[in-house]
Design a protein around this nucleic acid. Structure first.
Length: 215
DNA sequence: GTACAGATTGAG
DNA sequence: TCAATCTGTACT
């Protein structure tokens, strides 16, 4: 079983695929955070706490731990480590891949304002397109942990599901991210855990990617 | 039983 | 800057 911090970095560039009806939503993982309980004060499993809400965090690696925050947003986590060890990786942002075909058709008449490239894997084809500022706005559907769950229609019904066996959500290899492209920084919104834990650079994102959540 | 903060977001 | 909205936890 691989260490959680390694998994958090390896997940960058992978494609998260969600099947809704006959349609597939595909998003490239561009931002993650590691939570390593029971030592980690920012973890829901701090001091080995187990509740109905967080018990999926104790599952062996590869299961879905999903929960509600602020009464309205779902947070999508993947459990890591051995069974009984409360460790997980929070997926914080996705770059929408499956939408670019639509965008591509529309962008032909628009001036290219942004030089960022975007990979299109619709219909199994891979091609690069230019992103305009307007397209960028349209594409920012999953640049935050709550937003990506809304986009992919993820909720409590996925609680404890095996990501390696599910027919409605799974991971694909995606793109190889070089270590030099990975930025490590402080985790977001956990200052209550105190300086020792909030200072840990356990948030990882792809350098320069336009779909990383703000800050 | 009641009070309250929280791994967020978007509108004003 | 703040409201929306709900669950676990720590109190009374």
């Amino acid at each position: 079983m691989r260490p959680t911090l390694i998994v958090a970095k390896d997940l960058l560039g992978k494609y998260l695929v969600r099947k809704v009806g006959h349609k597939k939503l595909v998003g490239k993982i561009v931002e993650t955070e590691a939570y390593i309980g029971p030592e980690d004060k920012a973890s829901h499993a701090y001091k080995g706490k187990i509740t109905e809400r967080n018990k999926a965090e104790y599952l062996e690696g590869g299961y879905i731990y999903i929960y509600l925050v602020y009464g309205m947003y779902w947070q999508f986590n993947i459990s890591t480590g051995k069974a009984g060890r409360p460790e997980c990786v929070l997926i914080r942002a996705l770059e929408p891949i499956s939408l670019t075909k639509k965008i591509k058709n529309r962008s032909t008449k628009q001036k290219v304002l942004c030089s960022a490239e975007h990979t299109n894997v619709c219909s199994g084809q891979i091609s690069k397109i230019k992103i305009t500022n307007q397209n960028l706005k349209t594409l920012k559907l999953a640049n935050g942990p709550g937003k990506l769950c809304r986009w992919m229609k993820l909720d409590k019904s996925f609680y404890g599901e095996d990501l390696t066996k599910s027919k409605r959500i799974w991971l694909e290899q995606g793109e190889k991210i070089k270590p030099s492209q990975i930025v490590a920084s402080k985790r977001i919104g956990i200052d209550y855990a105190g300086p020792k834990w909030s200072a840990k650079k356990w948030r990882f994102y792809i350098k320069g990617n336009k779909f990383v959540s703000k800050k």
